[in-house]
């Protein structure tokens, strides 16, 4: 399949050199290589620079409000489990305003994918601090330096019971594409934090290029939880790849009673005559 089948033809408006281009490209390629029909795909995007993904992906899309990618995507998937639902979120969208949903999506293991465009800054609102901005970094809202400990999304995902936890780097498009393919193939909640420098407000390309290394080159066993936690805690060098992957029942399994046919295909209302007998 040609990746351009997923191209809406709209010219992206991201800054030249923005990491979002790599994510867009990697996703189109991953879907094409897996030969997934665009009709079957729903891309859900939040608010932020990443949100433009829904303008450029020729699939079903939902550009939702700030922080609500996960519940929106969960609703779509539970209503129609035949769809491939991929959520895109930014570090502000997922880890600041939308954080209340993240651990829950992970622990309930809904079969959706979450790709976080993590540039450690608010880009669209012109450069404010986010939960992944390192300490000391001066932003427009922290002119004297960020004073909050950044959170570690990989550790958080592991602690929350996520069944697929990975980190990608927009500077490694082919590697990223493979991660996306693995995430799509995973049955359950698949989480990928993508390090994606913001060339305008927080350009980390040079330092990231120096620090990243690939987990698969180290022979890491992704079923080893303790090792995954250790790797996630590394700061001197930055591992990318799959930290952790296991199989566990998915949320949809709890609703098999409602899936024959699934909610979206139901033609007739439920018969309530029998239930009414309780009230006589």
């Amino acid at each position: 399949m040609d990746p351009s089948i997923f191209d809406t033809g709209k010219r992206p408006v991201w800054c030249p050199g923005c990491g979002n281009y790599s994510i867009l490209l990697a996703l189109r390629k991953a879907l094409a290589e897996l030969e997934i029909n665009p009709e079957r795909v729903v891309i859900v995007t939040g608010i932020g620079c990443h949100g433009r993904m829904s303008e450029y992906m020729k699939t079903n899309t939902f550009h939702t409000i700030h922080g609500r990618v996960l519940p929106l995507a969960t609703g779509i998937k539970l209503a129609n489990p035949d769809l491939l639902v991929i959520g895109h979120s930014g570090d502000g969208d997922a880890y600041a305003i939308g954080m209340g949903h993240f651990p829950h999506a992970a622990r309930r293991n809904i079969d959706i994918k979450l790709i976080v465009h993590d540039n450690m800054i608010f880009g669209l609102t012109t450069g404010q601090v986010t939960p992944t901005t390192p300490i000391g970094v001066k932003t427009r809202s922290t002119p004297f330096g960020n004073f909050e400990q950044p959170l570690n999304p990989i550790l958080l995902a592991l602690a929350s019971g996520a069944t697929f936890v990975a980190r990608g780097f927009s500077g490694e498009v082919e590697h990223l594409k493979e991660l996306f393919k693995e995430a799509i193939k995973h049955r359950g909640f698949a989480f990928i934090d993508v390090l994606q420098p913001c060339v305008t407000f927080y350009n980390t390309y040079t330092i990231l290029r120096q620090k990243v290394y690939k987990l698969e080159d180290t022979g890491h066993d992704p079923t080893d939880f303790e090792r995954a936690v250790k790797l996630a805690s590394e700061t001197e060098r930055i591992p990318i790849g799959i930290f952790y992957r296991i199989n566990r029942p998915i949320l949809e399994d709890a609703f098999l009673h409602a899936m024959n046919p699934p909610p979206v295909l139901r033609q007739k209302p439920a018969d309530i005559r029998k239930i009414l007998e309780r009230f006589r």
Binding site: V42, V44, F62, T64, I65, R68, L70, P71, L72, A73, T74, G75, I76, K77, L78, A79, N80, L83, G100, H101, H104, F255, H257, A258, N260, P262, P263, V264, L265, R266, A270, D271, I272, I275
Partner: peptide
Amino acid sequence: VGIVVFQPESEIAAINMAIGAAYAGA
């Protein structure tokens, strides 16, 4: 009656899930 009944993490999650489901056709 064969329907999905679910208690999520908050009312914000609840309505967004319901909107997602309706977008999908439920």
